[in-house]
């Protein structure tokens, strides 16, 4: 649910990073937080356990500039990926305007990625949203490990598993090294804002 404050000419939209546990959602946000300027990035909030697993969510507010005279603020959240935290995932999804799905390239995570995407579709449906209609991009994370001898899924396999029916943009990334992180954020932000403006467009003419 985007919020538009015409007294300050501001739009706030909500972006959620979703995906399987340990896939790299929090690492994406940390990279963004560390590499963006203070003007763009607000304070990052993380609610996690000692062992760095997200317990509730991470939160990072971004001010990304102006469109049609409106200042755009994007509230970025991550969900806890572990299966047992579905209640909190649903809470974080409330009012979502766009989703970046972070898939883990580790071959051992193949089934978990698929299940997590199904879980996303289900939880969106609980919010009255359709995964095929909401702004969505996929990120295939941990591609840096291609240089190690840890077995990874190929991009073709990941496309087949996750994106065959959706056909949304996808990005190869490494959240620790930083490549693909901005590309993912930029594309999902663009789509989300466009979608919000389309939905409310007619009403902005005062």
């Amino acid at each position: 649910m985007a919020f538009i404050d015409l007294s300050r000419n501001e739009i706030q939209a909500k972006l959620v990073y979703y995906g399987t546990g340990r896939g790299g959602k929090t690492t994406n946000l940390l990279y963004i937080h560390e590499s963006m300027s203070k003007q763009v990035c607000g304070k990052m909030v993380t609610i996690d356990t000692k062992g760095d697993r997200t317990l509730f969510f991470d939160f990072l507010p971004l001010s990304v500039g102006k469109i049609m005279d409106l200042s755009i603020r994007i509230q970025v959240y991550t969900v806890p990926g572990q299966v047992m935290y579905n209640t909190t995932r649903k809470l974080v999804l409330r009012g979502v305007d766009g989703v970046a799905f972070v898939a883990d390239s580790l071959r051992v995570q193949r089934q978990r990625n698929i299940e997590s995407l199904e879980n996303l579709a289900e939880n969106l449906q609980g919010e009255g949203l359709d995964i095929r209609e909401i702004p969505l991009v996929l990120q295939y994370n941990k591609r840096d490990l291609i240089e190690s001898n840890i077995p990874l899924l190929t991009i073709e396999e990941m496309q087949e598993d996750l994106n065959k029916n959706l056909g949304v943009p996808y990005f190869e990334a490494s959240a620790v090294k930083g490549f693909g992180v901005y590309e993912t954020l930029r594309e999902i932000s663009k789509r989300t804002i466009k979608n919000v403006i389309q939905k409310v467009g007619g009403q902005l003419e005062r």
């Binding site: 649910m1 919020f3 538009i4 015409l6 007294s7 409330r94 919010e127 939905k199 409310v200 902005l204």
Partner: peptide, 12 residues
């Protein structure tokens, strides 16, 4: 609970 609408508030 469904929260589907976008909220638009103006200055007044």
């Amino acid at each position: 609970m469904h929260v589907e609408m976008n909220t638009i508030l103006d200055a007044s």
